[in-house]
């Protein structure tokens, strides 16, 4: 049956390979839709979606909003800065208040890991995780894998290295789960202080030397250094990080093979990746952004089709 095995998108961990492939095939269709003269379909005209961002976001929020508008859904937006949270309202109360306005889907970003899991036990609306603390960011992982699939055809047996701050990155964890489910081999690379101690137990290779990692891989996903999550210093200086883990053109030239370079954005140009590399033909950073809309349309479409089948 071509149907998702889940009712909410809480994380990649809950999906199986078949689910991911259904999402990809549906995204293929939506990618064609968003490249037509009229980039909109009327499918979700009777669905209402609430975007609840309890943590700042620019591109994910824009991408979700655009995906929802392209599907003709009605949307309401909420961001923590201007809400009653500051007045002491609980998460369930906030969400239930919004749901009583007859909302069908909740897209939520929340600073606490597991907030979506918790909410899914208490409300009926479909929930899409747009990032929960340092836990998961499933739509980012899906669009990353989709972008690799678009370039390489399939992920089976492909080698992907994720470079940077693995410890604080929800993008890294979701990517690891998604890549493994699709049959890719995953390595993480970065300073030991930024690599979780037990990560090798989930079948991930660990490498501290960027050059060796690049020689091994087909795809390098360069993560952003999250200065806002580093309350203590994990490396001596940004300059040292850049020297050891920044990806530059001379380094790419040295490894003697063509690898794909990705970045979930926003880029700290000149830190994890130089401008020359970010704008080179190896980079698929802008494809990732375009694919993000198609992937989010696919997820919203597939989950919506489960709402109170008429």
């Amino acid at each position: 049956m071509k149907d998702l095995s889940v009712d909410n998108l809480l994380g990649i961990k809950q999906l199986n390979e078949n689910d991911i492939n259904i999402i990809f095939e549906t995204a293929d269709s939506f990618k064609r839709v968003i490249n037509r003269p009229i980039r909109k379909v009327p499918t979700l005209r009777d669905i209402t979606i609430a975007n609840l961002f309890f943590e700042n976001s620019t591109r994910t929020k824009l991408s979700f909003e655009l995906a929802q508008k392209r599907l003709s859904a009605d949307i309401i937006n909420f961001s923590a800065g201007s809400s009653s949270l500051k007045k002491g309202e609980t998460l369930i109360d906030t969400v239930n208040n919004i749901l009583s306005m007859k909302v069908d889907i909740v897209v939520m970003r929340h600073p606490l890991p597991g907030a979506h899991q918790f909410l899914s036990r208490h409300i009926d609306a479909k929930i899409i995780n747009a990032g929960d603390g340092t836990h998961e960011h499933p739509t980012q992982a899906l669009l990353d894998c989709y972008s690799i699939r678009e370039r390489l055809g399939s992920l089976k047996g492909k080698k992907v290295v994720i470079v940077g701050d693995i410890m604080h990155s929800r993008v890294a964890l979701s990517n690891i789960f998604a890549l493994q489910k699709l049959g890719a081999k995953v390595m993480v690379c970065g300073p030991t202080t930024l690599i979780p101690k037990y990560i090798s137990q989930i079948g991930v290779l660990v490498e501290n030397n960027l050059k060796k990692a690049l020689e091994w891989c087909d795809v390098a996903n360069m993560l952003r250094i999250q200065l806002e999550r580093q309350d203590i210093s994990y490396f001596p200086s940004l300059r040292e990080y850049k020297t050891l883990y920044g990806l530059s053109k001379p380094m790419l030239d040295k490894i003697n093979k063509d690898i794909i370079v990705m970045h979930p954005g926003p880029i700290n140009r000149g830190v994890e990746i130089t401008s020359e590399v970010a704008d080179s033909s190896n980079s698929i950073i802008l494809d990732q952004v375009e694919n993000g809309v198609a992937i989010r349309m696919a997820i919203i479409y597939l989950l919506s089709s489960k709402i109170n089948r008429i």
Partner: peptide, 15 residues
Amino acid sequence: FFRDDFRRKDTPLIP
């Protein structure tokens, strides 16, 4: 995506 039987079938309409 233009059909009128969205949410009226047991499985999603696959394009």
